[in-house]
Write a protein that binds this DNA or RNA. Structure first.
Length: 370
DNA sequence: AAAACGTGGAG
DNA sequence: TCTCCAAGTTT
């Protein structure tokens, strides 16, 4: 689409207005702004993907203490990575971070690449994160286009491209590159983010008091509520699961999830997708029929002969972005020396040393185990 | 291009 | 309860 591009003079005024505000009222105390080494900037940027600042702060501090250098991260066992990331979500982020750390150590001799283009060759670093690191740590004048930038620029210029469309990112990137401050590109990008999370939020924005209200075309003509244009996401699909909690003296049955998909590689109690388990979708199984089927499942897959009981009538619900889980908990207490066909037995204290996804916490809680 | 990938908070 | 949002990347 065509936008009403600013004059050079207006661009200069905008930079000055934005950066003056940032110097006076920006979030200068954020821990990752104290020192703009590429490692620190990178760690913070990955954590901040789809995650709010207040959530990230304690994780960032712990992470930097546990893995102070890119070398220490490159060498860490995966379980340690996940344990530090536990509860933060999108766990592929930290796995990719380790691969990227190994790339920096191995392919770049421990020296961080300094350009957006090169940074994007690292695992888990896409166009946004590459631009953020390049601009903040190395002063490359490239626009970091994230949700804030989409929101701020769409209002300033009344851009009605759908920001949910991947192709739209290029348009905003090119616009941002025209107005970014070439002397202070990192501060410019961070100022846009601070603006986007204060006066120019998605809801309850306060453009009247925004430092850049004079540049906000949508505000000036009263059409601000229209921006940014974003198509609706699909509704989360309902998925039914059974959690099978088997206790053998002090131990619980514990199993590693597949390498791909939801909660990849986490150790959990066996979680059975009931919808897949019941092959005929037209038949509604009763709880008792499910119980009997799960007992057969336990015997076949684990060699465990047990009589299950349903713990809660009401399933535990857990909402992900694209799935809503309804987890019915079944349990049994056995006493057996029979070897397991798969999985293993672990006492509670030992298994808690593994990273726990939130759904697992909810299962312990439903069982009143802690 | 569209779907997958976690969690917590706000309204 | 439900919807949308929060410093995106990968496949």
């Amino acid at each position: 689409m065509m936008i009403d591009m600013w004059s050079d003079e207006k661009i200069h005024e905008f930079r000055e207005t934005l950066l003056s505000w940032y110097d006076a009222d920006g979030r200068a105390t954020l821990p990752w702004r104290q020192d703009t080494s590429p490692y620190r900037v990178w760690v913070s940027e990955i954590m901040l993907q789809q995650t709010q600042v207040n959530t990230v702060i304690p994780y960032f501090e712990r992470f930097m203490t546990r893995f102070p250098t890119v070398q220490s991260l490159a060498e860490a066992p995966e379980a340690d990575l996940l344990k530090v990331w536990e509860g933060l979500g999108y766990y592929s982020r930290v796995r990719n971070m380790q691969k990227a750390a190994q790339q920096v150590v191995g392919d770049f001799q421990g020296e961080w690449p300094k350009t957006m283009k090169e940074l994007q060759t690292l695992k888990g670093i896409g166009p946004y994160t590459a631009a953020a690191i390049a601009s903040i740590a190395f002063k490359e004048p490239v626009a970091a286009i994230d949700g804030n930038a989409f929101r701020v620029f769409s209002r300033l210029f009344k851009i009605d491209s759908d920001i949910a469309q991947p192709a739209t990112r290029k348009e905003f990137f090119e616009l941002g590159n025209k107005i970014i401050d070439p002397v202070r590109p990192g501060d410019f990008n961070q100022a846009i983010m601070d603006l986007g999370s204060s006066f120019m939020t998605a809801k309850n924005y306060d453009s009247e008091n925004s430092p850049v209200k004079a540049f906000n075309a949508a505000y000036l003509d009263g059409t601000e509520s229209y921006y940014p244009v974003k198509s609706k996401a699909k509704k989360a699909k309902r998925v039914n699961y059974a959690a099978i909690l088997v206790q053998n003296d002090d131990d619980y049955l514990w199993e590693k999830r597949p390498e791909d998909g939801m909660l990849a590689n986490f150790w959990t109690v066996p979680l059975v997708n009931i919808d897949e388990f019941i092959d005929d979708a037209d038949v509604q199984w009763t709880d008792d029929e499910i119980k009997i089927a799960l007992e057969g499942y336990l015997l076949k897959n684990y060699g465990i002969s047990a009589s299950l009981s349903m713990v809660e009538i009401k399933p535990i619900t857990h909402v992900y972005t694209h799935q809503k889980w309804y987890v019915s908990v079944f349990s049994a207490v056995i006493s057996s020396d029979t070897p397991l066909k798969q999985g293993n037995w672990r006492d509670f204290e030992t298994l808690m040393q593994d990273p726990q996804p939130k759904i697992q916490e909810k299962i312990w809680k439903a069982m009143q185990i802690k």
